[in-house]
Design a protein around this nucleic acid. Structure first.
Lengths: 258, 258
DNA sequence: TAGTGGTCTAGACCACCAT
DNA sequence: TGGTGGTCTAGACCACTAT
């Protein structure tokens, strides 16, 4: 392996530049192990901390992932899961019999598994209360927290909030929500989803999110706050999706008003 | 100021926990300066590098921003700019006479300014070529790169790609594109935007993007790849929007197919 | 000029992993 | 057991900011 001299002026930058060049040129392929921090330091004539700083820079760029006790590895480029505004289409569901998550997993030849983590009656967070038109002071909603996996790899965290007045005494308080799922039960209550709104932000994951999503450092999350509106234009369900941004992309198609 | 003992076991975690507690409790308000790294080290009885590591952790969480020569400051929480699928609505444009960017700036009482950085004929990047149905081997597109500012603060980087065969000999090769802007000229060429598709990912900014967007470390970008389709369903324009994720959110509303 | 963050050195010990 | 990353110490000099 050749470590050509980098263009940066700082030693840590020079090391990072040289290694980045090896990666982008393909000399170091995804999955390959980098020279150890001590080895990089030796080759470039620096202290170990300086080589370590170079590795930190590359980690922040999401090019490499350090693994304790094993080494630093070039990131695998993974195909993106794609989620979008077609995921609520009843037509797709009728034709395939699959929920959007299971459909996307099948498309990529992966096994879908969904784990219910918690179902409880809680006081909603501010942004949810605002959208559902309920109080943050009382336990006015039911919260359903689920973890979604593809071949046992974590993919997304999904938290659904429904007004307690809609959920009380229905299967919405149970792990299994019956035919048609959550939206089936909400239709029983007279809420037919007619319009949806997705509000999207990106941010770094919280500690808990990073842990569940197994997100290497330098990987942000996509945070999608979805609101469902019924035939009367009334919001009746809010769901927060948290995705690893290096594994998921979002797609929205829309008609342009003339 | 009280620096209560943190719960973490590692010294760097303990310092970070203590400072985070000061911020979330409001004892340190947005804009306030943290104790210097040397002072934190003194108070907690550690080496400076350890206090520095604590500051790095908080920076990664986007809670604080170090400023060279001045100090480390608690982040200001800023209101989000909001962009969505209504931005291509001709109706809004007719009613207000404002482009979506200028409309959002007016909504927030800020002055909009747009700076054309480059207009050149280039070979398109792979993802753009794929969507426009052109070759990556020839200079088959014109690229228009613009920087958008709100009160002189950078907000987004916008790069538009149009087939050279559509742009040749029109105002699309000039900084001023005339009435109705880019889409006005494309309508002259017979492309009326009928459908749009936005593909959204989040990632850490490249060095150049971070520099222009003045993005503090720990802040990801939202990368929106927009494709416009005309009345025949043919793609005729691709635009990449790169936003600072702590300053911008996206909103999509859509009808649900019955 | 004094104080700040930015970077670096040359060590040290620990936790984790493979053999 | 040896190699790896994770963390820490106790210094040092530089670049930037304010006075």
């Amino acid at each position: 392996m050749t470590l050509s001299e980098g263009a940066g002026q700082l030693p840590s930058r020079r090391i990072a530049d040289a290694v980045r060049e090896l990666i982008t040129s393909g000399e170091l392929a995804p999955g390959d192990k980098l020279p150890s921090e001590r080895e990089l330091a030796r080759r470039f004539g620096t202290a170990r901390n300086t080589a370590r700083e170079a590795v930190r820079l590359l980690t922040e760029e999401a090019l490499v992932t350090p693994v304790h006790g094993k080494g630093v590895f070039v990131r695998e480029k993974q195909r993106l899961f794609r989620w979008g505004n077609d995921r609520y289409s009843r037509k797709t569901y009728r034709e395939t019999g699959l929920t959007p998550f299971r459909l996307e997993m099948k498309r990529q030849g992966k096994r879908a598994s969904i784990q219910a983590v918690a179902i409880d009656r809680v006081a909603p967070p501010y942004d949810v209360a605002e959208r559902l038109g309920v109080s943050t002071d009382e336990e006015s909603v039911i919260r359903r927290l689920n973890e979604y996996h593809a071949d046992d790899e974590p993919v997304q965290l999904v938290t659904t909030y429904i007004r307690w007045s809609d959920a009380e005494g229905t299967l919405l308080t149970e792990p299994k929500t019956g035919p048609g799922g959550i939206h089936g039960r909400l239709e029983d209550k007279g809420h037919v989803m007619t319009t949806g709104r997705d509000e999207i932000t990106a941010r770094m994951p919280t500690h808990n999110e990073a842990q569940f999503l197994q997100a290497p450092s330098g990987v942000p999350v996509l945070d999608v706050l979805h609101t469902s509106f019924d035939q009367d234009g009334e919001p009746f369900e809010v769901t927060r999706f948290v995705h690893r941004a290096d594994r998921s992309g979002l797609v929205y198609t829309f008609d342009v008003e003339p």
